[in-house]
Simulated assay, not measured.
Amino acid sequence: MRLDKTELALLGLMAALVVAGPLAPGWLIFLLTIALAKALVVQGVVMQMRAGLVSFGQGLFYCVGGYAVGMGGQFLGISEGLLLLALGVVASVVLAMVLGLLLTRYREIFFAMLSLAFSMILYGVLVKSQELGSTDGFNVNHWTLLGQGIEGGDEATLTIYLLTVVCAGVITFLLHRYFHSGVGLTCEAVRENEVRVEYLGLSPRWLHYANYVVAAGVSALGGGLTALAAGHVDPEMAYWTTSGEFVFIALLGGTGHVFAPFLAAVVFSLVRTYAIELLPNAWQMILGFTLLGIIVFLPKGLWSLFRRETAAAPPSQGASPTPAAGGPGQ
């Protein structure tokens, strides 16, 4: 199996992050863990954006993945971390397979608002559930990894960091292959013109459906990793501001490359962390100005900084000059 430049860069980056883990301070390790986990959710948003849809309710699957990890340990007695993550992914995929039958009938603002509505329904259910801690949520039980107990403190922080790096690397590799496959390229064609895709004998609706289901599983994995890292889940994971944050990060990074969500998530986490520290009462304003600056100066996102823009070709010698203002006869 031949690896292209992106895949080789991914392997090198994963190795660097694994080696740097034990050397970095605990606060930075935790920040990177949460950023990488949320970047997986953003990957789900970007998958749908590449096909022409914007989901304002991706927090639904982020929350399902997190709560599945918490409830699996709390009510089912499951302690194996990988099994808990798999439980969240399966639950989200099953839910997406049901909701997708409805949502993929709609486009543009209708899809966005319907996805947001289902996320807010889950938020309302969790807030009213006293057994799940209502607005406070509940803590995640102690978990194991491949049968080995994970102690608290720095060991647990480093372990979940390494697990997140590996999961993010594997998902990024698979998504890169998917985006460059026939189906992935067809999704971009669907974004441009659904009618022409139908003339080719393909169904845009079922392509959107497949995208929606896969994006749900990826987002649930990010939610599960966040729950293991933070040790706590609450209904805010499904709130509209959380889903808006994922769209914010997607716009910040752009959709031009599979690495873009991770770059944007790390930048977003650093900007928000220092904004809260320096201006605790105005940090939202700083984030707003950051997004405004990106939209104005880098409309294709942060990743456009790493892309070589092709120089404009000089006009051919035989091209006719631009006619003077005022037209002939003046």
Rank of each mutant, 00 (worst) to 15 (best):
V183K: 11
Y209G: 01
V214F: 07
V165Y: 11
L207G: 13
S181P: 11
L162A: 14
R177H: 12
Y209K: 02
A227K: 04
G223A: 08
F173T: 00
L221I: 01
A230G: 12
T164F: 08
V183P: 09
H180I: 00
P204D: 02
S181Q: 09
T164Y: 12
C187S: 08
P204S: 03
V165T: 04
A210D: 03
L228S: 11
L174S: 08
Y212H: 05
C167Y: 12
V170R: 00
L174R: 02
A189L: 14
S181T: 04
A168H: 07
V190N: 09
V195F: 07
V213W: 04
G231I: 07
E194S: 10
F179M: 10
S219Q: 00
H232Q: 14
V213N: 01
V214I: 06
A210S: 12
Y199W: 09
A220K: 04
F179R: 05
L162E: 07
E192Y: 05
R205T: 06
V183W: 13
T172G: 02
G222T: 00
G169F: 05
G223S: 08
R196G: 15
V195M: 14
V195E: 15
V214S: 09
L163M: 14
H232W: 13
G223C: 06
N211T: 09
N211E: 06
P235D: 13
A210K: 09
L207S: 04
H180V: 06
V170W: 01
E198H: 13
P204I: 02
S219G: 05
R191E: 12
L185W: 12
V195T: 12
A215R: 00
L162V: 11
L162Q: 14
V183Y: 13
